[in-house]
Design a protein around this nucleic acid. Structure first.
Lengths: 157, 157
DNA sequence: GCACAACAACTGCTTAGGCAGTTATATAAA
DNA sequence: TTTATATAACTGCCTAAGCAGTTGTTGTGC
């Protein structure tokens, strides 16, 4: 038993990070999606488009790992985006298991158009935060993700 | 257009808070649920039990507001927990619209038993964080929740 | 060269979540 | 008192997510 910040006596729903993360995302997600009404993106669809836009991934397997999203579910998200002409699949010639994903011009236009709306919304959300606070929040989320992903490896050796 | 921390030029998937929150929760949630294997709680079920345990709410409407979880879905979560004998419903005599929820002794035992496991897991997750970092993270999540809930009111006047 | 595990993408099935209602009760206004 | 409005809990319906596979492809050890 590691000694640490929480103890069984002091731990409660008010200061539980997982609980607070859930509350935050449950509030934030529908408000994000409300920004995309013109394009009718779900939050997950938007995340996929953003990954392709910013070069974080170009294959479904990488996207599902980055988002920690079920790979079966992601196939269907890609189906939808492809069906709407926003991304395109290309079977890789080097490794025929892989399908390379890319934004179409329409997809690029759509996701680019979402950026100012998102930026404005997030800026209003963080208007009471200092620049340092926001950087620290982003940094801590990244550290948590890294730590959790490291732990994930131990579970499937 | 408010000026703020993000600009359309610098905004990308690597520093998008919503995206990072989603990743974190998608990693954290299944690992939490793995801790509850003995009791077979989902994360949402556990959140409901915690709210009752710590006195944050004793009615379905309050719980769904606190968690920002759909009230219809919550009815079914309560059904499950009641069916397993972990909580009980009592129709309020003061206001007969309301159903008061309470942990049964079994429910209390089950949720209490989860606490040391959760505390240990969260402490390991935050072992590289200083006490100040963790407090700041919790504080910032609470500020985000408050801000988002305030904005929610404006949308349904 | 051949069996084998590892992997990417995908499919079918089951469950949970989100949305639009319905019913019953309470409060406020006319 | 009657009407209108708000709220709590709940229900039915539909879509998305999570899980356990299947198929096809690559690389490794024998």
């Amino acid at each position: 038993m590691t000694s640490g910040h929480y103890t069984p006596e002091t731990f409660n729903a008010r200061n539980a990070v997982g609980y607070l993360l859930r509350c935050t995302l449950n509030l934030l997600q529908p408000r994000m999606e409300a920004l995309f009404t013109d394009h009718e993106f779900t939050f997950v669809q938007w995340c996929v488009l953003m990954q392709l836009r910013d070069g974080l991934a170009n294959r479904a397997a990488d996207i599902s790992r980055n988002l920690n999203h079920d790979s079966g579910a992601l196939t269907r998200v890609v189906d939808q985006l492809e069906g709407r002409g926003l991304i395109e699949r290309t079977r890789s010639t080097e490794d025929r298991r892989m399908v390379e994903l890319a934004l179409t011009p329409d997809g690029r236009t759509a996701v680019d158009a979402s950026i100012p709306l998102v930026v404005d919304h997030v800026n209003r959300l963080f208007e009471d935060f200092s620049r340092d606070d926001l950087d620290m929040l982003i940094g801590m989320l990244k550290r948590m993700i890294e730590k959790l992903q490291d732990g994930e490896k131990d579970r499937q050796p």
